[in-house]
Design a protein around this nucleic acid. Structure first.
Length: 480
RNA sequence: GGUGGCAUAGCCAAGAGGCCCAAGGCGACGGUUUGCAAAACCGUUAGUUCCUCGGUUCAAAUCCGAGUGCCACCUCCA
């Protein structure tokens, strides 16, 4: 089988993937999950789809995957300088609900998104609030090593004590000092130091989420949960850790500092990061794009896409058409062309299924040559655009029987996740009025009254249905 | 200011030294079909060409240098 090569952020190059497990069977993978204080936007979802492709590829290669994803339901502050408001508490205030309700609501919404996008569920979901003990335990270990110090508002990690701190993100520590764009918390010893445990504020409203700790009542800092939970479920060393590209310089850097300073060994073998979805900032200026974000005012959710009649899997299809390490410019045009592409793909699959139903004794079997082409594409750092191209080539290859095509495509769909096996002609209710007009039209056509026939066709179209005249009569289809 | 990245057809987007006079999708155009359409099917669609200029090489979209434009991260956000 073709080697699986993945781009490892740790080394900044493509490296053949080898599982840590000596048996080469089990791959342990941790993916940073959402903070559930609002809906995920489609840019967030891009990362989860990339991770899903990665996981499905590993499965395709015959690995078993133990996949852990966290739900951050506590305690992130609104800026990186360990100041500002708590997003969860803020969201709760905004909606007049408890933080726990907010967390539940957006967790449910997130899981629905994953379902809509055919993203495989992780083996383990873990909530930050269910693992406070593990987080406190890890902070204590850091404390025992002399890596922490106390400030008025919390316990901080002294990054100067961990010389490898800058390595992962290739940070220029000197210039971070000079840059100082972040307002520094009073008393922090180094600009890169970060909070491990925050104390509940003495004044102001009581926090809804707070816990006892050896240092006082408060809540965990926002990097500690991933370190603590991933170790809890996957051990001190595991194979893969993923997230968005923005996690490299702060979040993942801090996670590494928290773990490797304690264990003194390499924590994660492969780090993979997904690039951003960016959106056109203004229609008249070419190349003027912005990341999608809550504060950019370009917040698009999957629900919005659905309300515009886009199929969630058409969004998946759009993403498959670009490599996960390139920025993808999201435009309405691109989304529409993805929708058409996906619908066309689906129609062709349905056609295949129909002809299989009609014809007997078709040649069966998975076409290994195409599968190997597919492996070559997907095994080269998840080249989904090329992998999709292979799928289209199969559809256009007249030397294959419909059954061979379908069986081969179903195999490839284990990775693509477009739902080939489930695709079927929508059995749609035709409204009675339309059936009536249809009857009229059949009559008109028998009498070769083309004028009337065309008129009725237009009428049906105006009602949102398309008339398809075929050899075996008339069909109508809802216009998508 | 620091760091990382991108520039390929009308649009989206692969390709990372010879398989490239450059994949695939969308669109457009032509044809078959049709009473006419639609749908379907077939075909065409980068015309020394891969932002510009220079270099390396027998050979460059692919490597190197310079320039131009753009994006992201370093600030809550994948």
């Amino acid at each position: 089988m073709k080697n699986l090569v993945l781009y490892n952020t740790r080394e900044r190059k493509k490296i053949p993937f080898i599982a840590l497990d000596p048996e080469q069977k089990l791959v342990k993978m941790y993916t940073c999950g959402p903070t559930v204080y609002n809906y995920a936007h489609i840019g967030n979802l891009r990362t989860y789809i990339f991770e899903d492709i990665l996981k499905r590829t590993l499965l395709f290669y015959g690995f078993q995957v133990k996949h852990v994803m966290n739900i951050t339901d506590v305690g992130h502050l609104t800026d990186d300088a360990d100041r500002g408001e708590d997003k969860m508490e803020k969201g709760a205030f905004r909606e007049g609900k408890s933080v726990w309700d907010i967390a539940q609501r957006y967790t449910d919404a997130f899981k629905q998104n994953l379902k809509d996008l055919n993203i495989l569920d992780p083996n383990i979901w873990c909530k930050a609030t269910d693992h406070i003990a593990q987080q406190i335990d890890l902070i204590q270990k850091l404390e025992a090593k002399g890596l922490t110090y106390r400030l008025e508002d919390g316990i901080y990690y002294n990054t100067a004590q961990f010389p490898e701190y800058k390595n992962f993100a290739r940070l220029d520590i000197e210039n971070i000092k000079a840059g100082a764009r972040v307002e520094v918390v009073e008393g922090k010893k180094n600009p890169t130091d970060f909070a491990l445990w925050k104390f509940s504020p003495k004044d102001g409203p009581k926090r809804q989420m707070e816990w006892e700790s050896p240092w006082g009542i408060g809540f965990p800092g926002w990097h500690i949960e991933c370190s603590a939970m991933s170790m809890h479920y996957l051990g001190e060393q595991f194979d893969i850790h993923c997230g968005g590209i923005d996690h490299i310089p702060v979040h993942h850097t801090n996670e590494i500092a928290q773990v490797e300073a304690v264990t003194n060994k390499l924590w994660v073998n492969f780090w993979l990061h997904g690039e951003f979805l960016v959106v056109q900032a203004s229609s008249d200026k070419e190349g003027d794009t912005k990341r999608m974000g809550k504060s950019e005012g370009n917040f698009l959710t999957l629900e919005v896409l659905k309300s515009k009649n886009y199929h969630p899997l058409a969004y998946r299809y759009l993403l498959l058409n670009a490599h996960y390490r390139s920025q993808l410019i999201y435009t309405e045009d691109a989304m529409q062309s993805a929708q058409r592409g996906f619908v066309n793909f689906k129609e062709k699959i349905i056609q295949l299924k129909e002809s299989i139903g009609k014809e007997k004794n078709l040649k069966a079997g998975i076409h290994e040559d195409y599968v190997s082409q597919f492996f070559q594409a997907i095994g080269d750092d998840l080249n989904t655009p090329q992998a999709l191209a292979v799928a289209w080539k199969i559809l256009g290859d007249s030397s294959l029987s419909p059954l061979e095509k379908l069986q081969t495509l179903e195999k490839l769909d284990e990775v693509l996740g477009l739902g080939v096996a489930q695709m079927k002609a929508e059995t749609q209710e035709i409204p009675a009025e339309i059936s009536q007009i249809l009857e009229e039209r059949i009559h008109a056509r028998k009498e070769k009254d083309w004028k009337k026939s065309d008129l009725l066709r237009d009428k049906i179209k105006a009602m949102g249905y398309e008339v398809l005249d075929g050899k075996d009569g008339m069909k109508v289809k809802k216009i998508q």
